Every structure is written in C-alpha cells, then in structure tokens.
Amino acid sequence: MQQKPQTPAIELLAKDLNAQGGVYCPSPQAHMQTWNTHPKVYLDVGHSGSAKCPYCGTVYALKAGEHFAGH
C-alpha cells in the first residue's frame, strides 16, 4: 500500500491570526493551485496552538515561542 506524502505544517506568527485566533484554509501560505482548492474553512489555531484542515490535511501551527493573546 502506497502512503500519501504528509503535508508539512505551515508555521504561523501570532500576527498572522485574525482577532479570534483563527486562519482560513485554503490560504496564501498553503500554495494551492486553483484547480486543487476546497471550500474555505475556519481553523482555530490561537487557542490550541495548531489545527488541521478537514479537507486537505494541511496543518497550521503557531511557530515555537509564539503566543496568541486575543480575547
């Protein structure tokens, strides 16, 4: 059985998150081609430190040492 290559995590700075601590996928950081996109989904990274897109499997994570201080 051939395994699908693992998508690397996209490291984010706290300033990359919106006011609620989230990001949307697909995002410019994911470098997706137009033909390969999926519906836009909100991922809460600020509260857990990382989140995985349920469509494409891209993982978005805060870079080591970064902290989200939103409300």
Rank of each mutant, 00 (worst) to 15 (best):
L17H: 08
L43N: 03
E11P: 04
G21V: 10
K15E: 13
A61G: 00
A61T: 11
P54K: 11
P54S: 11
E66C: 05
S50A: 12
Q2H: 12
K15A: 13
A14V: 00
V41C: 13
C25S: 15
M1R: 04
T34W: 15
C25H: 00
S27W: 01
C56P: 07
K63D: 00
G57N: 01
H31G: 00
K63C: 06
P39R: 09
T7D: 02
S48T: 14
G65Q: 14
P54V: 07
D44A: 14
Q29W: 13
P39C: 07
V41E: 05
G49P: 08
Q33R: 15
Q3H: 10
D16K: 07
F68S: 10
Q29A: 11
H67G: 02
P54C: 08
P8M: 10
P28L: 08
A14R: 08
H47L: 10
P5D: 02
W35L: 10
G49R: 12
K15C: 13
T58M: 06
P28S: 08
E11K: 09
C56W: 02
Y42M: 00
L13G: 11
Y42F: 15
Q6E: 13
M32R: 13
Y42E: 03
S48W: 09
T37S: 10
V23D: 04
D16L: 00
H71R: 11
H38C: 05
G21A: 05
C56G: 02
T7Q: 12
A51V: 03
T58R: 04
P28H: 12
H38M: 05
W35H: 12
F68V: 05
V45M: 06
M32I: 01
V41W: 11
A51F: 01
T34Y: 14
P8H: 08
G46F: 12
A19F: 14
H38S: 07
A9I: 03
P39M: 05
A51I: 08
M32N: 10
S48N: 15
C25T: 13
W35G: 06
L12N: 01
A9Q: 01
Q20C: 07
L43R: 01
P26E: 06
V41S: 10
K15R: 15
T58L: 06
H47R: 14
T37D: 10
A30T: 12
W35R: 14
A51R: 02
L62Q: 03
V23G: 07
W35Q: 11
P28N: 09
P26Q: 08
P39S: 09
